[in-house]
Structure formats: C-alpha cells, structure tokens
C-alpha cells in the first residue's frame, strides 16, 4: 500500500494558486479548503496522494532526499539549489524572469560592484560568465531596498510584472533568463513508482502543451 502512495511537495506562496489550478485541471480532486488550510500535510480522499505544503525553496530538498516523490518548484529555486532531481516538465505557470536592476543611471562606477540578492549562486554564475568579479550580499526579501538605501549597487532578483521595481524607482539593467515552475521527481521514486509517476507526467504534459508559450 505504502508503495502506491504518491507524495507531492507543493510550494506555499506565490506559485501555490497557479499550481493548485493546474493540478485540478489535470484531474486531481483537491479539496476546496486546500488553499486556505493551515495543515501542512493533506491526503486526498479517494486517491492515493499525499500533499505536503512547504516553503518554495525547500521543495527541491524534500524531493532530493526522497522525503516526497514529486514536487512543484520554480526554475529560480532549482537553479539556486542545484539539487539532484529530475526536472521533467516545464509547467508554464507563474512565469517571470531573473533580472539585474538598480537605480537609473547608476551602473557600477567603482571597482567593487556590490550586488544584493536572494540568489547568490545564480548571481555569481552570471557575473563570472561575464568576466566580472562582484561582491555578493545575501538578503532574504524586499531586495529592492538595497540599492535605494545604498547597501548595494544593483540587485539580482525575479521580476514578474515589474511593478515593484517601478514603484521603488528602479530600472531593469539586464535580463538573465526566463523563469517558470517545473515538475520535479526524485530519481529513485521515478524507478520504484514508475507507472504511477509516468501517468501523472502524461496528464500534466497533456494540459501544459496547450498553454505552453515558446522561449522569447
């Protein structure tokens, strides 16, 4: 019985609503209360599925260690964490992009460019590929503050509508990559529960193919 149970890590927060809509469309009977519940673990009534609600950056960790079989995670989180998981489907939801931003007209004037970010690996990778050495300052939220109060020269962060940047008087300097949410699978679960997981993947591919927009 335990083998046929599939456990799924869901990211709370920004992606959660999109992810729930997508799973309902794929035929999962998620209860009405799913979006409002304070419970962290949720079993479906009629199907062998268990959902856990985790902080988005932790989803790849649960999946890598096999604490859950599959998960939904943003590409930003996957790139930053570098976890050993199968990234099987681009779900095409919660789209945004990774960007460098800062105050207008202020682009690194002194030799030590200071960059504030929630994504030190992604930021470091980006600047190294450009052949620039920068100093990274790791922050956990409201990154837009950093250039305004003079903590950093620029920020590397995800931008969805650009509204937060605009409201705080920042402009985008460069676009690093497009970000969307991915379906990820633990490598061993993929072997041991292959049929059940392949069925889920196929259902999800079925509905994402219609909505998928190519790379721009």
């Amino acid at each position: 019985m335990k083998d046929s149970l599939i456990t799924v890590a869901m990211p709370k927060g920004r992606i959660f609503g999109d992810a729930c809509r997508l799973l309902r469309k794929a035929g999962f009977a998620l209860p009405e209360t799913f979006e409002t519940t304070r419970k962290l673990i949720f079993d479906l009534e009629d199907e062998p599925f268990r959902f856990i609600l985790a902080k988005p950056v932790d989803v790849p960790t649960y999946v890598e260690y096999g604490a859950v079989d599959i998960g939904i995670a943003g590409k930003d989180v996957l790139l930053e964490s570098g976890r050993d998981v199968y990234e099987v489907v681009d779900l095409g939801i919660s789209k945004c992009h990774m960007a460098v931003a800062g105050l207008p007209g202020h682009r690194g004037v002194h030799p030590f460019l200071k960059i504030a970010t929630k994504y030190p690996h992604i930021a470091s990778d980006y600047y190294r590929k450009r052949g620039e050495q920068v100093e990274l300052i790791a922050l956990n939220g409201s990154i837009e503050l950093a250039p305004i109060v003079g903590l950093a020269d620029a920020i590397v962060d995800i931008v969805s509508t650009g509204r937060t940047l605009k409201d705080n008087g920042l402009v985008e300097y460069d676009r690093l990559m497009d970000i969307s949410s991915r379906l990820i699978v633990n490598p061993v679960s993929y072997r041991m529960k292959k049929q059940a997981i392949d069925r889920i993947i196929e259902k999800i591919i079925g509905i994402t193919e219609g909505t998928k927009i190519g790379m721009d």
Binding site: V85, E87, V88, V89, R182, G214
Partner: peptide, 12 residues
C-alpha cells in the same frame, strides 16, 4: 543533470 526541460530547450 536530469534536466529534461533544459535538454528540450537546448535542442530547440
């Protein structure tokens, strides 16, 4: 890297 999505993007 088990990155199927990246594989398809690279192929494209």
């Amino acid at each position: 890297n088990k990155n199927d999505v990246g594989f398809r993007e690279y192929v494209a």
